[in-house]
């Protein structure tokens, strides 16, 4: 009941899957997320852009996996036990993104989200949907469609 009223009062509640990269928390729209996997065997693809680690076999489908850290301008890190691949569907393609760990699903009201502030890291900004204060820390919400659309352009330009 109370939740219903809240929703009506302050726009729709979005659900965001949160994950970490280094010490920072990120979120991605749950509607885009298909599943979360522990890191499967990744087959490297020669000639691919450096931010694409390779491809995985997702039940018979070949799905590319992106090094999210590199994409967001951080340095790569050696594989760890908490590493996960989040399989997301964006822009009519299925892509996996490699993250340090997956935390929870956050319910966030649209009104809480601040449009992208200037948080400095250049590569990052264009993929950001917005930021929100969550559990006393900053949660960066990513725009999954832009995350890949942009890359495709980069990729084409190098051809």
């Amino acid at each position: 009941m109370t939740e219903d009223r809240v929703e009506r009062m302050d726009e729709a509640i979005g659900q965001w899957v949160t994950f970490t990269l280094d010490a920072e928390s990120y979120g991605i729209d749950v509607m885009r997320v298909q599943e979360v996997l522990s890191v499967p065997e990744i087959t490297a693809v020669p000639g691919a852009p450096p931010w694409i680690i390779g491809v995985i076999n997702l039940r018979g489908n070949v799905v590319p996996v992106i090094d999210t850290r590199m994409r967001l301008g951080m340095s790569s890190k050696p594989p760890g036990v908490s590493d996960r691949v989040i399989v997301i569907e964006a822009d009519e393609q299925i892509v996996g993104i490699l993250v340090d760990s997956v935390a929870e699903v956050a319910h966030i009201r649209a009104g809480q989200i601040n449009s992208t502030p200037n948080i400095g890291r250049r590569e990052c900004v264009r993929y950001i949907h917005g930021v929100v204060s969550w559990n006393g820390a900053l949660l960066i919400l990513l725009d999954s469609v832009r995350l890949f659309a942009q890359q495709r352009c980069d990729h084409l330009a190098t051809l």
Partner: peptide
């Protein structure tokens, strides 16, 4: 097919399982 992200890489026709 390797998908849109990896399409058109020289030397690759695709992949298989």
């Amino acid at each position: 097919p390797l998908g849109t992200l990896l399409q058109g890489l020289p030397g690759l026709t695709g992949s298989t399982i």
